[in-house]
């Protein structure tokens, strides 16, 4: 997970709320030390929460001087002198029994503490697992939805062959003319280099007029590499080029990765 994804995950908001486990808190702290933008984000979140909660302050807070009465008033307790006494054997046995009892209780306390920590750890793991299950389920739902779409009868499939720059690669467009949506599958294209994005073009052939359908700037976060783009055009062909981030007004032809013609039907 990169820093942007980490920030977008929402964990920092929970960090400020103070509802994460100790382990998660330590992880966030490690990220803060590594990435200044994480700290920056946390400060912004905290600012918003401080403002938000302060709205319910029922008037001005007591002056700090009042707090000072406490901080200044710390005194070292006076030790009283003890008079000497003689101790009988009853006292000694009493003390011995007390020590045995106390160590027993201390041991029990220690055990209970350990068990409580185990329970808490198991609880935290549970939450993480549930989160993973929920993520996987969401992925599965998205995939199923996609299959459902690709099975519709109005879909035209166009295979885009790899061009000079990457002859091995390919892509596919599933075009639903009626709904004016094209699903572009780019799993057969190489991963775009840093700072570049794929841009999809609808083409008219005579004369050659490209119309941009959109850029695939969500490439990293999309697992199945299928993107839905609106396509109200009367496309005769589709092309995919590699463009600088943000896309271009016209396709850069020497960066044409894949091209395919819609068969007349």
């Amino acid at each position: 997970m990169n820093v942007e994804e980490y920030i977008a995950s929402g964990i920092l908001e929970l960090y400020v709320a103070g509802v994460l486990s100790e382990e998660e808190n330590r992880d966030v702290h490690a990220m803060i030390l590594k990435h200044p933008e994480v700290r920056e984000e946390i400060e912004q979140i905290e600012k918003a929460i401080v403002r938000h909660t302060a709205a319910l302050a029922p008037g001005t807070v007591p002056s700090f001087e009042f707090i000072k009465t406490h901080t200044a008033g710390k005194q070292v307790p006076v030790r009283s002198l003890q008079s000497k006494k003689t101790y009988s054997w009853i006292t000694y046995t009493g003390w011995a029994a007390t020590i045995v009892l106390a160590s027993g209780m201390f041991f029990m306390y220690y055990r209970i503490n350990n068990l409580q920590q185990d329970i808490k750890r198991a609880g935290d793991q549970n939450i993480q697992l549930e989160q993973q299950i929920s993520d996987v389920r969401k992925d599965a739902e998205a995939t199923e939805e996609l299959i459902e779409i690709l099975r519709q009868k109005d879909i035209v499939t166009i295979t885009l062959g790899g061009q000079a720059i990457a002859p091995e690669s390919f892509a596919r467009v599933f075009w639903n003319k009626k709904d004016e949506i094209a699903y572009v599958d780019v799993s057969g294209l190489p991963e775009p280099p840093e700072g570049k994005v794929y841009q999809v073009w609808s083409l008219k052939l005579d004369p050659l007029t490209p119309t941009s359908m959109g850029i695939l700037d969500q490439y990293d976060s999309d697992n199945n590499k299928i993107f839905a783009l609106a396509n109200p055009n009367q496309s005769q062909a589709f092309g995919i080029t590699l463009e600088p981030e943000g896309g271009s007004a016209t396709p850069t032809m020497d960066q044409l990765y894949a091209l395919g013609v819609v068969s007349a039907s």
């Binding site: 929460i49 401080v50 403002r51 909660t53 302060a54 709205a55 319910l56 302050a57 029922p58 807070v61 700090f64 707090i67």
Partner: peptide, 15 residues
């Protein structure tokens, strides 16, 4: 710290 956060905490406590 008191001047930064006491209003906010006062609000939370009052809530």
């Amino acid at each position: 710290i008191y001047s930064d956060y006491s209003d906010s905490l006062f609000g939370v406590i009052f809530g």
